[in-house]
Amino acid sequence: MKPENNPDELIDRYLRDESASPSPGFTEQVISCTRRTSTISRFTKWILPLAACLAFAAVFMDLLKKDSSQPEPPAPVADQFAFDDILLLAEPLDETSPLLDEETLELFALLSE
């Protein structure tokens, strides 16, 4: 059987695709691409740890600042709220004279004498 009539021969010739090749300049294109990729990977190799270090340093500095500064006033407790409320209630009475009973008035009179 002639090669051109042998089906397997024809199939193999088609599969081998021997005339096909990448476009001219392919090698240069790949080399520049690999260089670019390796530069990026080199960059990312140290930029990520550096970023992590900077973030850690920022958090650490913040913590140090907090430690060295004035202690924060203690959080108001429930009793203090009640005392503030009493003061607020007392404020409107500043201008008015207190209502005193008779015994107290007598005591004030004795003292003044």
């Binding site: 096909a20 090749s21 790949v30 691409c33």
Partner: peptide, 23 residues
């Protein structure tokens, strides 16, 4: 480059994609 390109070219039937994958 040629063996890889031919493999991708026959697999994908597309020159541009074959070249891209070879790269």
């Amino acid at each position: 480059k040629n063996p890889l390109f031919r493999f991708f070219d026959r697999s994908l039937n597309n020159h541009a994609d074959a070249e891209d994958l070879t790269q």
